[in-house]
Amino acid sequence: MDETSRTRSAVHAYFERVERRDWEGFGALLAEDVVYEMPQSRERIRGKATYLQFNREYPGDWHLQVRRVVADGRHAAAWVDARVGAEHQDACVWFELSGQGLISRITDYWPEPYDPPPGREHLVERW
């Protein structure tokens, strides 16, 4: 398996294991010095133990489903359908893997929906 395929597999495994709440298996994918960032809230978590605790303690009945993963070498991006109860959001998650094939950096973008500015109704289709 080439590097890009390993990266893609690691990202799919990341979401599968976190969705199953398989914390031991999830932790096995992470580098000890993993860094997790959420730019919208300007939060950063450093280290596997802290990141595992963050996920174990995350409130609500949340679920993540991968829509698409694009990988190139040791980098990948995932488009994710995130749900907490009845609330739905799309998320974009960026990954970086170490030379050992462990996830070393995760950047999570949670875009908020907003109404577009007026004046382009003739160009777009709203859904």
Rank of each mutant, 00 (worst) to 15 (best):
V70Q: 07
T107F: 08
A10K: 04
H63S: 15
G85T: 04
G99Q: 13
P111K: 03
D72E: 15
A77D: 00
W94P: 00
L64P: 00
F26W: 09
I106K: 04
D33Q: 12
E32W: 12
R6F: 13
D22M: 13
G47I: 02
T107M: 11
T107A: 15
P117V: 05
G73T: 12
W23F: 15
Q89T: 07
W127C: 08
G73L: 08
A13N: 06
V34F: 07
E24T: 08
L123N: 07
D81T: 03
L30R: 02
I106L: 14
D22E: 10
S98I: 09
E125T: 09
H12D: 06
D108Q: 07
L123S: 12
R83H: 13
N55Q: 06
S98Y: 11
S41D: 15
A76N: 03
S41R: 13
R8M: 05
E57Y: 03
R120I: 15
W127R: 11
R126E: 13
K48G: 08
L97P: 05
G119Y: 14
W94Q: 00
G73N: 10
E125D: 06
H88R: 12
I45A: 05
F95R: 02
S104E: 12
E87G: 08
R44A: 11
Y114T: 10
A76H: 02
V34D: 03
Y114V: 11
Y51G: 01
E32V: 04
A13T: 02
A76S: 06
W94R: 00
Y36S: 01
R105M: 09
D81R: 01
W79H: 12
